[in-house]
Amino acid sequence: MAVSTKAINARIKSVKNTKKITKAMEMVSAAKMRRAVDAALSTRMYASLCLEILSHLARVDEPNFPLLEKRPVKNMLLIAISSNRGLCGSFNANVIKRCGVLLQDKQNLSKHRITNDFEIEPESDVKIDVLGIGKKSALIAKRNGLDLVAVFDKLSEKPTYEDVLPISNMVVDLFLKKKYEKIAVVYTHFGSTLVQTVKIRQLLPISEHDLEKTLQQLPKEMDESYKDPFPIENYLFEPDLETILNTIIPRLVEVQLFETILESAASEHSARMVAMKNASEAASDMIGSLTLTFNKARQAAITQEISEIAGGAAALE
């Protein structure tokens, strides 16, 4: 009988307190997750409509628009979306890991894919910079020895469209000034509460190939409407195609960025919820086994006391 019941009791109490905290965090994350998922899902409709119109327009002719221009890649910008806070399971670790894997093959990463078999090869030595969203994203640049252009870590829990505008303006500006020839974003796609996958999506230049790939990933919300696509040649354009492209293309960049940020937020909250759920369960298990040890120790103490008393009484006789 070496373990004192008092020490075990203190231990149980502290685990119980921790469990209370993780339980509370789990519930907070669950509520936040529901909101974030709603936001992410409602953006998907807008994003897919924009993408569809643009992929229709791209069929008319390849208009000479700066944001569509495909130059051989010398410098590339990787936007990595991570969380601002920890305690969310492997959420950030997954993003960092995926970036590490992607960065091992820079040549492949910086190719322009025009169709499945036609590609523009990048220059031999590609320089890749990182733009981080969320505090933890700085680690990606640090671990891979890359330059960090900027970190946006002031995004609120519930980002609005206006919050994203400064980021997209900056990105578009960098592209137009020809600092980068390709800009891609690494984000966490929200599949369900349990399934989140880290994905990469090309943001600029806008390419038809990538748009179609993205469209396939997005769930079709109005599948019937595009069964028989109306020939785009019969469309009227008011005032003209150029003005329309001028309106749609910057919005497309914004909305893609907005959508990826919302998807990441939804993934973050669900990752945190699952992590906290696991922690609460682990705490319950621990309390169970500690209680068992406590009872054993108590029992042993009582037995010992009784035998001592019995021994004492026997000695008196």
Partner: peptide
């Protein structure tokens, strides 16, 4: 826009 309007994209 009434029904059977010509297809149009506008700003």
């Amino acid at each position: 826009v009434c029904e059977r309007h010509a297809p149009l994209i506008s700003v």
